[in-house]
């Protein structure tokens, strides 16, 4: 049973990956940029899902990790000869440490208060960037432009796939993931079973802050012009939250589906109606609809069952099958 099912699944995954790798040679630059954006948001949504989905703590501060990452890469590349690849790693390390600090302070709070606390931190970072003398204030920062859409597509795709694989192994397969879920389900019980709840929460928050930093750095170099509103605005964190809710919170593939659909939808509206904020209205309605009728996200639609029969999609609900 496993072999047939597994082969089919592997074949589908392989085909999908080849298709994604060949994309720059098939589709026009305009669409390639959209797919680069999809990868970016998939990476961000998956990162948010670590703390929001697996840990059950709703953070509205994750936009700050993206923004700090973007500014860190911009600053490093503007003032030093350090190449892009290392600059984004510096960004990631920085946001990891930053998340450790934010987590240390905000995990004294629970539920809504945690959400507000993280949001306040994000807002604080936006103000800091506006005020610091070397970040260009509200004028933002410009990076040396590199016109190579294929390169950025591959970078973002690689990052998204890295976060996906990381999420899968750490949160679905390892005993660390089981610890995290147990803390989400019942903190008190988890403590009395020997789990250092504070430590687990801080580790997850720091990990979920690491990837947005790297992705933010890549974004800065891709777009070449960043300013506080574009990388530190509240809409970035909001979109991560909504994408995860749309696709399916606490699952591996939910955020992928949510981010892809929402970003492509956003771009289609942008193409047809121009650069307006009208899509926010549609977004708002969509959120209401999902929360009301589909609280577990699109991944829990019956479609999933039929997809699974032909070998696609998450199977995390049936761990016993993995044993065989």
């Amino acid at each position: 049973m496993f072999s047939r099912y597994g082969t089919l699944k592997n074949a589908m995954c392989g085909l999908g990956l080849v298709a994604l790798l060949l994309l720059p040679f098939i589709i026009p630059t305009f669409w390639l940029r959209i797919f680069t954006g999809v990868s970016l948001w998939v990476g961000l949504a998956l990162s948010w899902n670590m703390i929001g989905g697996y840990m059950g703590y709703i953070s509205f501060g994750h936009g700050a990790f993206f923004g700090v990452g973007a500014y860190a890469t911009a600053l490093v590349m503007a003032h030093t000869p350090i190449p892009f690849g290392i600059a984004i790693l510096i960004s990631g390390t920085l946001t990891y440490l930053f998340a450790r600090m934010v987590g240390y302070l905000t995990f004294r709070l629970n539920g809504t208060y945690f959400a507000i606390g993280t949001w306040a931190f994000a807002e604080m970072m936006r103000q800091v960037v506006l005020l610091l003398p070397f970040t260009g204030g509200s004028y933002g920062m410009r990076l040396p432009p590199v016109v190579n859409e294929g390169f950025f597509y591959y970078v973002m795709l690689a990052l998204a796939v890295a976060v996906l694989i990381f999420s899968y192994f750490i949160f679905e397969k390892s005993s660390f993931g089981l610890k995290v879920k147990s803390v989400r389900e019942e903190e008190t019980a988890a403590q009395t079973l020997g789990i250092d709840v504070e430590k687990v929460k801080n580790q997850v928050f720091a990990l979920s802050g690491l990837f947005p930093g790297v992705i933010g750095g890549a974004y800065a170099y891709w777009i070449t012009y960043i300013h506080p509103d574009s990388v530190l605005g509240p809409l970035i964190a909001d979109q991560m939250v909504v994408m995860v809710l749309l696709g399916g919170i606490g699952t591996v593939f939910g955020p992928v589906i949510g981010a892809s659909l929402m970003y492509i939808g956003n771009r289609i509206i942008w193409v047809t109606w121009g650069d307006s904020s009208s899509y926010l209205v549609i977004l708002g309605l969509a959120i209401c609809f999902i929360i009301r009728f589909l609280p577990e996200g699109l991944i829990k639609l019956p479609i999933r069952e039929s997809l699974r029969r032909i070998g696609v999609g998450a199977r995390q609900a049936i761990p016993n099958e993995e044993v065989r």
Partner: peptide
Amino acid sequence: ARTFQNLRLFNDLTVTENVRVGILNRQ
């Protein structure tokens, strides 16, 4: 180790996973 008067199980995890969380303590 203890149990709780008003049950505190990991409701969304399977029975096996609930027990496995307890085992993690050993390592």
